[in-house]
Each structure stands twice: as structure tokens, then as C-alpha cells.
Design a protein around this nucleic acid. Structure first.
Lengths: 347, 347
DNA sequence: ATGAGCTATGGTAACGTTACCACCTGGATC
DNA sequence: GATCCAGGTGGTAACGTTACCATAGCTCAT
């Protein structure tokens, strides 16, 4: 019970001023950096702040004209997915350098939640918004709805919405991953993709298809399964079951994302435990890294990319709209982040 | 170019009122639910809101006495760790039901950042705070600093700080996991833990130790390595190397968390690729689940727990302080979440 | 016909902050 | 000795919102 100076309510500038024996303005000036405030006054103010446990009310502050909230809204589709967690981390890393903070929301990939979240973030006066689009209706993202709040899209693009975007090299990564399989002599190659995420999925399939076509390998529609639900690896397991039960099963599978990779490998594991030989199981090329890939019972090639880097880049795009001066008015930019293709061997 | 009704600045209640031909109060009332507002007036207001793209300024709103910000602060140590991501997801899930939103910050496990984050969240008038303590100094969490803002700690406890806490059954989980190894006949069991997270680490080691002592198995200090850095699995690999190079290497290793499990398994993988026999490699008991554990080349037992559930429970504790009526004044509660121990076989 | 009890509406003030201006002091300049 | 500047300080108003009170119109029972 130290101090016991009184009420547990939040103190205000006025109370600090009273205690320090100065005016609220002097308190405000001191907290804003102390320009044109005498050292003695500053010391008195700081003492009063300490004694009262005063914190400036940032909401009231951002209410004044010309003051910004210092908040960047970040909306991702799945907080539980480490990929998006790292993405948010990259954003945070960069915006923190400018003294801003992120306010993070989870859309669960649902357009309705996204709409609600965007409205709320706008209501909280965020300076800008970084969004991994959920898919579905996008009216709430149109310029006339957002006003002058800058928006940066990540991972997916929205056609008809001309804003800054950070993407992966989906096409190139899928192409090179598939090429690796072709180079190894595979000709019956399965494809596992998602029903949602039309944009990303489409691009990855495009790269896959291009590699096959280029080598004159025909696409067998029965080896292409793109029905998987977004968040669940279970449906990828079902799809893998179907592929492996085919009369002429694939000798390799391209999995268009982490969830499909995990689902496919689980099914392979199931069969190995049931007595199947590893040599009869397909090799995997996974778009997206996953941990311990090098310990898998079948060879795994990874199309790897850095979510954090993606987040950093998205943040940089947004900040250049906010603080960039001249560059703030540049036409929308599209940044495509590179991917690495390699056998899964972590050092 | 639809509408083109004018300025891209943010409209206010006054402008909406003007356009709807009513007073600001009628607008406010309509937006607050529409009690005591005629249907015609409501319709006019809603039309004006749509046309102007109006969003209520939540900051100004929370400025009024009696109004709360609707924000819950959540501070976690590592956003990139799916465990904490899922934790945040659980918190969000529950607080969303009460119309609140989370504002999420990342401490990186650094006390200084934690202090700054807490100050900022307080400045933004969060109604309450859910925190995974970073370790280190904790003055900024003491009641005299937080005022009447409720705090819930997760995963770790802070001695001398008497607030609601949600913990895992660390001791029991480690005990049962170790028992499983002893039951399988192991007597030389290694232990990998972290240098940070003294609280959690201590509890898990306690369970480990208790199981050994109970069976009269002596602890070999050379098999206990607790120096690993928190976020990196690389140092766990180094530690594993040391254990396996021992004259009398352990036949099993208890890894006190996910990062150590992954590090240990990577080292095992390295040796297998170098020609070691799987039968000579140790079996693993991992506190914390990780994906594809069932595909590992050595047997893996998991002490599993649900981060999301932990987050939900933390949120419930906090909400009962905020909305709980009588229960809001209950003495601090400690909730210990159960863990499951089992061989790694996903269906 | 009167007034009590509604509902619908608007005016005013206040929340905590800071921009703007006005005011003081003291020392330097003419 | 009068004038100027610069640094230090405080008063006032405004940001966007809503609680409170006042008022106007209405219905219904007396």
C-alpha cells in the first residue's frame, strides 16, 4: 500500500497540472517533448505524472484536428496460422519504427466479418489498413467507402480495386516446383489446391499447368483436386486418399499450400503404418514451408517464402502513403516477393 | 466514380444530421439502436449515413463519461508462434461475443517492450488487459500503476501480483509424460528446457523430477540442459548434440516445449541422414504438440494442450471482472487447464 | 376541458486533449 | 530610458460524441 494518494480513477491533465502547480497547457507541452517549458516546470510535471500514474488519453488526443491515432489496422484471415502470425509480426516490426501500433483483427476468411472489422477499424480512426482479403463481396473496401484511408492488400489481389498490393511469386514458384518434379522424371503428378482463395490458388495452378504444358506432359483431370476447404487439412487427406487409390496413382503430388501438404503427408503416414512401402508413396512438392519437412518419410521439396518479409513490405507500402511526402500520391504499386525452391533440408 | 457526393474527409454526426434534416441527437439515438426515434426519422438517418459513408468516431464516443472503449488489450510474447496466435484467437472468440474487440501487441518476451505496450494500451483506454508475461521487471503491472484496469495473466504467474491467472497443468503434464517413458523401461532420460520462462520451465521440470524420484531413478545432471534461448530451436539442436555425444547417451528425451522438440528432432534427423540407425536414437516426449509428430522417425509422445481454450478461459476471467456484477469483486482466481498425454497418432 | 403520461425531438454541456492567441517577464538593443 | 524580442506561461475554444434536461405534440382517463 504505497502512496495511497487516492482515487483509482484515471487522472487527467488537469489533475496533473493541479498537483504540479502549473496549467494544463504546460503539462501537455512537457509531455509533447518539453519545447518552451522551463526545466523546473518540466521536473514538477514529471514528478506529478509519476505520483499520479498518469497516462495521456490517446483517444482524446486523436480527437483534436491534425492529430493522428497512431494506429494501423491489420486484418488477417487466420490468426492461428503461423504464416499470418508472422505476417503480422513483420507489419508490426516496421510500423513500430514510426511510433505507431497495430490493431489486429481476425476475419476467419469470412467476408461479413471482414466488413464489420473494417468498419470498426475505421471508427477507431486507424491511419491505414493492411488486409489479407477474405474473398467474397468487397464493396466495403471500395474507395468511396474508405474515404482517404490508405489500404494495402496482401497475398491476394482484388480485381477492380486499384490499390497497393504485396503478392508472392505464386506463378513462378509453382512453375519451378513443378519443374523440379518433371526434371526428376515424374510424369504423373497430382495437384491439391483449395476451393477458396481463388486468386492465389489460380496463380499457383497456372504455374503448375505451365510447367507441364511446356514439357508436353498431359494434365490428367483425375489427378487434380481443388476442392479442399481453406483452413482444414482433413479434406486434403481425403483428396490424397482418392489420388492414391487411383488405378494409376501419381508418383508425385504438388500441394498448393501448407494445409494440403500436411493433409497429404498424414494420409501417406497412415498408409505406411498400415504396411505400405515408402518407395510406393508419392514425392511431395509443397508450396509453403512447414516445420520438420526434412524428416518426412518421402522426399519433400519446398517452395518457401517469408511471411514476415511480406508483412514488412506491406507495411512499407502503407507507410509511404502516410509519410511518404511526394510518393504518397504515386499510382498503386504491385510488389511481388520472390520465393525459394529447394529440397527440404534444414541445416 | 459513383455518387461523387463530395469531400473525402470523414463525415461527422452533424453532417449526417444536416443531410437527414434532423438533429445530431436523433442521429446518435438511431445509431445506438433507435429507441424513441420515429421510423421515418430512422430511415432518413440511415439513408444519410449510407450516402455519406459515415462511421461513428469510436474515440470520441469513448471519451464521454460512462462509455467504454470496447477494447481488450492482449499482449503476447511471440505472435509468430502458432501457440500464442491460437491463444489470441481464443481470446478474440470470447470477447467478440460481448461486442468488444481485441487490440493485440507483441512483447517479443522483452520486459521493456511489455512496459511500453501496457502504457500505450492504457492510454488507449482498454477496458482490461490479458497478458502473457515477458519475464523481468514487473512494476508496470502492479495495481497502483494499472489503477482499476483488470489484468489477467496467462501461462505464467508473477509472484507478488495477486490477479487472475490461467495456467496449464505443467507439473501434472510433465509428470505423466515422464511416467510414460519410465513405464516403457527408460532410465536414462534427457531433459531440454529453456533458460527464460522460469515459471513454466520450473513447473515442468518439477513434474519431470517428481516422476523420476518416485520411481527411484537418479537424475544425471549431465542429461539436463536448460540453457536454450526462448524463441530459437537452433540452440535445442546444439543441446541435443551434446546429449547424444555423451558416453552413455539417453534413450529418451523429455523436451519441455515445442521449440526444444523441433530442435531435438532436427538433430536426430541430421544423424539419421548421416547413417545413424533409428533404433539408436532416443524416443521423445514433447510438452506441446507439433504438426506431423506421427511421421517422425522416432516414437514421439505428446503432452498436448489447447492454446485456444486457454485464451477463451483467460477472456472469460477478464469479462467476469468487467461484466460479472457481483463476481467482479471475487478474490483472484487461478485456473489450471488440463493437458492430454498420448502417443502421436493423428487420425 | 383538464392534466397526467407518453413519445419524439432538440439544445446545451461536458468528456480530455491541444492549437491558437494573449500575456507576461527579463535582457539586449537603440 | 524606451523599445524590441524571445522564452515561458495560461485562457479559451474546439475536436465528435452523447447524457441530461426541456419542450412540443399526442393519447387517454378523469
Amino acid at each position: 500500500m504505497s502512496g495511497a494518494t487516492g482515487a483509482s480513477k484515471k487522472p487527467t491533465v488537469k489533475e496533473v497540472a493541479l498537483r504540479a502547480g502549473v496549467s494544463p497547457m504546460t503539462v501537455s507541452r512537457t509531455l509533447a517533448g518539453g519545447a518552451n517549458v522551463s526545466p523546473e516546470a518540466q521536473e514538477k510535471v514529471r514528478a506529478a505524472v509519476r505520483e499520479l500514474g498518469y497516462h495521456r488519453n490517446e483517444n482524446a488526443r486523436s480527437l483534436r484536428p491534425g492529430q493522428s491515432s497512431g494506429l494501423i489496422g491489420v486484418a488477417i484471415t487466420n490468426l492461428g496460422n503461423p504464416y499470418y502470425g508472422n505476417f503480422a509480426l513483420g507489419v508490426e516490426e516496421v510500423v513500430t519504427e514510426t511510433g505507431r501500433r497495430i490493431i489486429l483483427g481476425n476475419t476467419g476468411g469470412e467476408s461479413a466479418r471482414e466488413r464489420q472489422l473494417v468498419a470498426d477499424l475505421k471508427g477507431r480512426q486507424v491511419e491505414g489498413l493492411i488486409l489479407v482479403p477474405a474473398g467474397g463481396p468487397t464493396e466495403h473496401l471500395m474507395p468511396e467507402r474508405l474515404g482517404d484511408m490508405p489500404l494495402v492488400l496482401a497475398s491476394r489481389r482484388i480485381y477492380g480495386l486499384d490499390v497497393d498490393v504485396v503478392l508472392l511469386d505464386d506463378v513462378g514458384g509453382a512453375y519451378r516446383g513443378t519443374r523440379a518434379l518433371l526434371d526428376a522424371g515424374h510424369t504423373r503428378i497430382g495437384y491439391l489446391g483449395n476451393v477458396g482463395s481463388a486468386f492465389t490458388g489460380g496463380r499457383r495452378f497456372e504455374g503448375f499447368e505451365r510447367a507441364l504444358t511446356e514439357r508436353g506432359v498431359e494434365l490428367d483431370p483425375e489427378l487434380i483436386v481443388r476442392e479442399q476447404q481453406d483452413a482444414a487439412s482433413a479434406s486434403a487427406g481425403e483428396a490424397t486418399k482418392r489420388l492414391l487409390d487411383h488405378d494409376l496413382p501419381p508418383t508425385a503430388i504438388f500441394t498448393a499450400n501448407n494445409r494440403n501438404s500436411v493433409g497429404a503427408l498424414r494420409e501417406i503416414g497412415r498408409r505406411l503404418r498400415a504396411g505400405a512401402r515408402a518407395a510406393d508413396m508419392p514425392e511431395i512438392v509443397s508450396f509453403d514451408d512447414f516445420e520438420l519437412a526434412e524428416l518426412m518419410p518421402v522426399p519433400v521439396t519446398i517452395v518457401d517464402h517469408d511471411a514476415r518479409q511480406l508483412g514488412r513490405e506491406a507495411a512499407r507500402l502503407l507507410l509511404s502513403r502516410l509519410d511518404g511526402g511526394d510518393r504518397a500520391q504515386d499510382p498503386p504499386r504491385v510488389v511481388e516477393m520472390p520465393v525459394r525452391v529447394g529440397r527440404a533440408v534444414h541445416v
